[in-house]
Amino acid sequence: MTITKLVSNDPEGAHITHLNSGTKPPTPSLIAWARKAKDRLVAYGLLFPAMSVFVVFFYLPAAFLLYISFFHWGILSSATKFVGLANFRTLIHQPLFLKSLETSGYYTLVMIPATVMLALGIALILKEAVTARRGGIWRAAVFLPHVTPVVATSIIWIWIFNPQFGLANFLLKAIHLPALGWLESVHWALPAVMIDTLWHSLGLYVIIFLAGLANVPRELVEVAQLDGAKRGRIFRRIIWPLLSPTTFFVVILATVNSWQAFSQIYTMTGGPHGGAGGPAFSTTTDALLVYQTAFIYDHFSLAAAMSLVLFAIILLLTFLQKRISNRVVFYR
């Protein structure tokens, strides 16, 4: 390598290389090229199995989705017709689609702060317990809901939210609060789903926050204590800023998961419960509407256009968050 470089840097040397290239012994640069080509071949060979799976199950469907969003396309019909942006135009004039975006936005807007606050709160409490003798049990207990199947636990939550004999209303009555309709109420169906989702997903975020907290050097907290700072101030000025990369990661994850939330909403308020998603479409998020449009009403092209809009929203939000993070997040 060095030899080739030296030769090509020097004009006279370059001349020599040029002369040599015609004769029998291969030039150093040719050997280097061959070596590089061989390395590349090996690299692509190793990548091939994984890449082929990825292409078949991810890139091709994604490309196909983009393709059908500009057509009228049915899974059983052969009449495929190019319609340009007609699908997107239909969406804009579709009140249910706009409402579903609103519902998704509301869901995300509540879920992000709730996730961050609860997960961080639990992590801060657990942090003390982690060093204790049975810390592992606590961590496992918090993480356990996350590894249970969403559909199965959502069914349990349906029972909990049953207005007549569910646990939720029993507890509300116990503290003299009015019972709620929960999944049968326009206003409380989505919050009920949120509670289920929080219960199910918090474990993961708690573990992520615990890892982040473990990375905050103990000395910094000690020094701040000696500097006369009280708990609140230590959290605000030391722990929170140093935790910001973790928090940012959790926010991104929670955003994506919220926009894509489907299983628990479908199980609790879709399918057997009227198919639509809550009373008066109160829990019909964008993801749920995509499913219904495609698989219940057979409008695959329209559903494809919807998911593209959803994709664009998530992309835009992540991009915005990244921009904001450059100013807010502190990386060591």
């Binding site: 050097p217 910094l220 000690e222 000696l226 030391i238 800023p241 060591r332």
Partner: peptide
């Protein structure tokens, strides 16, 4: 915080942010 102590640590422990 009520002992009026200044402490210097081996790894400096400066607030990095």
């Amino acid at each position: 915080d009520r002992r009026s102590i200044g402490m210097v640590f081996q790894n400096y422990a400066l607030y990095p942010h």
